[in-house]
Design a protein around this nucleic acid. Structure first.
Lengths: 241, 241
DNA sequence: TTCCTTATGTACGCTGGGGAACATAACAAC
DNA sequence: GTTGTTATGTTCCCCAGCGTACATAAGGAA
């Protein structure tokens, strides 16, 4: 019932806290399981909770027009969902939606604000993450502008793998298309190429990464670039090799 | 010599400070004139100063590949250049370059860190701006992905006009192309259309906005969207009508 | 004036991805 | 099994923007 992932230490930000700060935070944390598609907040509406993902993965989406959106950020165990709260702002222009089901620690905004104000070390960790996230968003802007669907697909799969720490996960082409802001057909074609090369394998919403090195080779430099920034901020926290 | 623009009050963030905080900040501020093309910081290198623009305008650029970059943010009197410092980070993955010459207040990073740590109100103002900037970057990501050169050009001109508070400024098509991440030819064509419609007028690097309303009509919703977020954070600070 | 540099105009073929439609295949419910 | 639903494969046309090349024109320097 209360597995490893449902403990605060499973989140990177919380894991860096001192014993004292940690004890202060614990009673406010609510272990939850996020399901695929859960919306944590909508653009413009008030943010009610912040989330510290464990093995869940959350997408930040920007809305362009009524029906067009694109992912600009991906948050996993290394971060927190609800950065605007840390900035003293109560809403976000983005949509936060669960892309990979899994565990997370939830905390009400009011409680978070109280604890946050009292804990400089938590502030430092959160702001460092804010910097990483900002970098990710900026790089994604350029990536969306310049790089091919195939490269972006590869990047997205890698980023997901880094966060869920598994090489198999459930995702349809349709969903990937929504994230990348392209047609489903575009994803199918790019994925098909990767499958022929035995880099990935997939069937009806199930994707397996067979050759991570080859996947890295087929993505753009954006992947490593953002990764390095995260590693610097998380004190050299390495990802799987 | 020491004109209106070279006084701290000319910057929106500084203008909101209390008398006491303001007096504490003043001795650390260095009035400077930024010239077109001045690089305030390079990706990866240490940030040495933060800047509070008055009527100068600074672009934040993301580097995609060796020779390709795209603007993801535009900062004027409403903000501060050097947000990573507020996050406790010493470098930025972005390039900050002066796009519109003018006045700014400069402050050494060490001095800023000291004052910043002591002034909750300054922190609040800076973090609110960070939120606006983040929103701008995210929206730009989607805008770059979905919207046409013509719309993006119009948006860029409007954002610039908002910050310099003039309807005439110096910019070549070549430069605009670099900012938008498109070919110079693409800008020339889009600009030509706007000129035929008497929305703008230009000759050899000089651009005049003739019909602001028409320019707003030809841009995408991204412009108003980002504007609203800025207005909310700056306490309803209205831009020109 | 003349020359040179820089800014803008215009044309041409190419391609990645968009929109749309339809075919196939795998699973689920019955 | 049968049927319905959902995921993926494939095709066709279209166009915005790319890369490139070259023409014109406006200003500066002599």
């Amino acid at each position: 019932m209360f597995e490893l992932m449902h403990t605060p230490k499973a989140n990177g930000l919380l894991a860096t806290l001192s014993r004292k700060n940690y004890d202060e935070l614990i009673p406010q944390l609510d272990p939850v399981t996020l399901n695929f598609g859960d919306v944590l907040y909508e653009p413009g509406s008030r943010i009610r909770n912040v989330y510290f993902p464990a093995d869940s993965v959350i997408s930040l989406l920007t809305v362009a027009d009524t029906d067009r959106a694109a992912e600009v950020g991906l948050i996993g165990r290394e971060g927190i969902v609800g950065i605007p709260i840390a900035f003293g702002v109560s809403t976000s222009p983005l949509r936060a939606v669960c892309q990979g089901a899994g565990a997370a620690m939830r905390m009400e905004v009011a409680a978070f604000r109280r604890v946050f104000a009292k804990q400089p070390r938590l502030q430092a960790a959160v702001f460092r993450f804010a910097h990483s996230l900002m970098s990710q968003v900026a790089q994604t802007a350029a990536c969306n502008r310049y790089h091919r669907v195939g490269e972006r697909l590869a990047r997205w799969l890698l980023m997901t793998q880094d966060r869920v720490k598994r090489n198999e996960f459930r995702l349809t082409h349709e969903f990937l298309a929504k994230m990348l802001g392209v047609r489903r057909v575009g994803v199918s074609q790019a994925a098909s190429i990767l499958q022929k090369r035995k880099v990935i394998r997939y069937t009806r919403g199930n994707i397996v990464i067979l050759d991570r090195a080859a996947l890295i080779a087929s993505t753009c430099a954006c992947y490593e670039f953002v990764n390095r920034i995260y590693a610097e901020q998380n004190g050299g926290g390495k990802r799987r090799g």
